[in-house]
C-alpha cells in the first residue's frame, strides 16, 4: 500500500492581521500624524522623530538579540512615535531619547517583552518626562505654522494658558476650523484632522473598533456637560483628546480583553479625562485620564469577566 497521509495541526488559515501587521498599521497611522507636524514645526520635529526611531530600534533590537527572545520591535516603535506626538514641539531631543529609553527598558523589557506589560509604554514615558521636567515642560510649546491662515495672533498670547487650562476658546477666539486643522499651540501631533484620518485608516483596517474613540468622546463630553463646562467643544476638539482616543486607549497590549471591558475602559478614560479637565489639569487631561484607567484595566477586565471567574469558583467547590 503506497498511500500515505500525514497529520498536521490545525487551523490552516488565520486572521489576516498578525501582531506585526497591526503594529505596523499603528506605526503608519501615527507616522501620518507626525508628517503633518513636520509641516507645522519644521526640522525640530524631524530631529525628534529621528532620535525617537533610532533610539528605540537600536535599544530594543539590541536587547532582543541579547536575550534571544521573539520580538516585534514595531510595538515600541509605535510607542516611541506616539510619545513624540504627545510631547510639545520644542522638546529637546535628549529628553525624547530619555523617553524612548524609558519606553524600551521600563515600559517593555522590565515586564518581559512584547505582550507582557500592563501599561502603554508611551504613557509611562510621558508621565516620567512631565514629572522630571516640571517647569521646563511648559516652555517647550511653540506657535505652529498655521494652515489655512488664521486671524489669531498667537504670538501675543500666553501659550502657557493654552497648555495649563486646555481651554483654547477662553484664551483667544478661534473657530472650529482652527481647532480641526490644529492651528492652536499643542503637542507635536496636534493636527486633529490628520489624527482623525489616521483613526479612520485604523478602523478601516480593523485594527481598532469605532467604539473606542466614540465611547471616549461620549464619556468626556458627558462629564464636561455635567460639570457645567462652558468650553466643551474646544476641549474635546483638541489634539490630545484625538491622540488619546486613537493611539492611547486602543493600544493592543494594555487595552481591555473582555467585551464589557472594551466598552468600559474608553468610557471611563473619557470620563476621568473630563474630570481632570474640570479640576484644571489642562490640555494633558486626556493623557492623565487614560493613564489612570490604563492602570486599572486589569481590574476592570476581571470585574467585567466575573461571570467566567465565578464559574471557575463553582468548579472548585
Amino acid at each position: 500500500m503506497t498511500v500515505e497521509l500525514y497529520a498536521s495541526e490545525f487551523p490552516h488559515s488565520y486572521r489576516s492581521l498578525s501582531t506585526r501587521g497591526f503594529y505596523l498599521r499603528f506605526v503608519v497611522a501615527v507616522a501620518l500624524v507626525l508628517a503633518a507636524s513636520v509641516f507645522r514645526y519644521g526640522w525640530n520635529a524631524v530631529a525628534n522623530i529621528v532620535v525617537a526611531v533610532v533610539t528605540t530600534v537600536v535599544l530594543d533590537g539590541g536587547i532582543a538579540s541579547l536575550s534571544r527572545r521573539a520580538n516585534a520591535s514595531s510595538d515600541v516603535l509605535f510607542s516611541a512615535l506616539v510619545l513624540c506626538a504627545l510631547l510639545p514641539p520644542a522638546t529637546p531631543w535628549s529628553v525624547v531619547s530619555i523617553g524612548c529609553v524609558v519606553i524600551v527598558l521600563v515600559g517593555k523589557w522590565t515586564f518581559g517583552g512584547v505582550g507582557s506589560y500592563w501599561m502603554h509604554p508611551a504613557i509611562l514615558a510621558y508621565v516620567v518626562i512631565v514629572l522630571s521636567g516640571k517647569g521646563a515642560f511648559e516652555s517647550w510649546f511653540v506657535v505652529p505654522r498655521t494652515w489655512p491662515s488664521t486671524a489669531v495672533d498667537w504670538s501675543a498670547t500666553e501659550l502657557i494658558n493654552v497648555y495649563l487650562f486646555g481651554t483654547v476658546g477662553a484664551v483667544v477666539d478661534v473657530g472650529w476650523l482652527d481647532l480641526l486643522f490644529g492651528n492652536v499651540p499643542g503637542p507635536l501631533g496636534g493636527t486633529v484632522i490628520v489624527t482623525l484620518f489616521a483613526g479612520l485608516f485604523l478602523m478601516a483596517e480593523d485594527v481598532i473598533p469605532a467604539t473606542f474613540p466614540a465611547l471616549f468622546a461620549i464619556g468626556m463630553v458627558a462629564v464636561l456637560l455635567l460639570g457645567g463646562s462652558q468650553e466643551v467643544f474646544t476641549t474635546v476638539f483638541s489634539g490630545q483628546v484625538a491622540l488619546a482616543a486613537f493611539f492611547l486607549v486602543p493600544e493592543p497590549v494594555s487595552r481591555a480583553k473582555t467585551y464589557l471591558g472594551l466598552a468600559l475602559v474608553p468610557l471611563f478614560a473619557g470620563a476621568i479625562s473630563g474630570v481632570f479637565t474640570l479640576v484644571g489639569m489642562g490640555g494633558a487631561s486626556p493623557i492623565y485620564g487614560t493613564a489612570v484607567v490604563n492602570g486599572f484595566t486589569p481590574l476592570i477586565d476581571s470585574l467585567a469577566g466575573r461571570e467566567y471567574i465565578r464559574s471557575i469558583d463553582e468548579i472548585d467547590e
Partner: peptide
C-alpha cells in the same frame, strides 16, 4: 488564504477570549 506569520509571544489582545464560543480563556 493562510496568512502565515511568525509566531510571537501572546500580546494579550484578548481576541481568543472574546472569540471562544464556550467562554474559556
Amino acid at each position: 488564504e493562510i496568512h502565515r506569520a511568525p509566531a510571537l509571544p501572546c500580546v494579550g489582545c484578548g481576541a481568543c477570549l472574546r472569540s471562544c464560543p464556550v467562554s474559556l480563556d
